[in-house]
Design a protein around this nucleic acid. Structure first.
Lengths: 190, 190
DNA sequence: AACGTAGTACTACACATGGAGTGGTGTCAA
DNA sequence: TTGACACCACTCCATGTGTAGTACTACGTT
């Protein structure tokens, strides 16, 4: 098992792209090698087996989907009103759109996790942390609404993103924008 | 190309199970043959190629996810109040749970549709019809709320189902029940 | 400065698997 | 008798795993 951390990360990032493009079953060592442009056999040296590969990708993907430190810091400044919250949600949706393959890969991982208990455990942990963080953020901001509001918003936005990524002709960009606004407004004004 | 309609349907239903269990890439003629317990090579005779198979599954899956005539008729009777609407949504969520593999297969199809334009067209058509039907149903019922309410509810419930199917430890059954109630209540009281 | 060593990159191969497509034979019913 | 379909067998091909072995590079030692 090789230890070169940069290379491992490059392989995992390549795996994310493969996942999004080829699906879970297409995530093979060879495909990862090809995507990362390293010689065939390299991935074999970095992951014990495919299960290990899935688990490591599951551990990393959330890091790449969450906003970076600077963005978080920026959002902690200024007034915390509903407009600001909506802005944050729009940014979330846009960020996902900009890292399209990351979100698709996460969906593939979710589906794959019905077959791989280890992967399911990793994803469950990450996602629960994310939801709790969102609830905490909302509570600290002093905005109206309760934790149910936050969860409902989480649900609606996630599917909105799925809809946009998988069947982009269902809603127009304009409709998506309005739906985000509506979701924030109605969730918080419960 | 064979024409036996019953056999074709049996093959498509088998394909749905394969999709849910093995993923999109695992949907092969041979796997369908095995699942339907017919001799190898049969699926080859019923579908021109894999693309055709995907498209036909996409056309059929929605028929199996929607409520049957009797259920629809039953729901058209009696008072159309918010409690009744919530009941309908609970039934939707339960129906999906009872046909687990169907919903998972639909998710696989959505992901696969990012690679198959024909499939995307079929799914887009079906889903748009479904959303429009939901909006129409709501409007006819005379319940409070507008079309945005219906769409937001659609979004939230869909992801709730995804969450339950893929990572069942995120929310308890109790929480899911409450979230359905909350989603209906808050959507309609906009 | 020469040497040795360890870790890693890279290459090659043996082995196995799985699936597509097709041609052909058997069977049944109109 | 004929046509459609179920069933079977076989060829060809593509892909992937796991591993053994070679080449390179950096670094520490004397």
């Amino acid at each position: 098992m090789r230890r070169n951390a940069e290379r491992r990360q490059a392989l995992i990032d390549a795996a994310i792209e493969v996942l999004a493009r080829e699906g879970a079953r297409g995530l093979t060592f060879r495909a990862v090698d090809a995507e990362a442009a390293v010689p065939p056999g390299t991935a074999s040296n970095y992951f014990a087996n495919r299960d290990d590969l899935f688990t490591q990708v599951g551990g990393r993907i959330y890091e790449r989907l969450l906003p970076d430190e600077a963005t978080i810091a920026r959002h902690r400044e200024g007034v915390q009103d509903q407009a600001r919250y909506a802005e944050l949600m729009h940014e979330l949706v846009d960020r996902v759109a900009a890292f399209n393959s990351g979100y698709l890969a996460l969906l593939e991982l979710r589906l794959e996790s019905t077959r791989r208990p280890e992967l399911r455990a990793v994803l469950t942990k990450r996602i629960r942390e994310d939801i709790d963080a969102n609830i905490g953020y909302h509570a600290a901001s002093g905005l109206p609404g309760d934790s149910t509001s936050v969860v409902l918003l989480y649900l609606a936005l996630n599917w909105l993103i799925v809809e946009r990524l998988t069947l982009p002709d269902i809603f127009t960009e304009q409709q998506i924008h309005e739906l985000v606004d509506a979701a924030v407004r109605r969730s918080l004004n419960a």
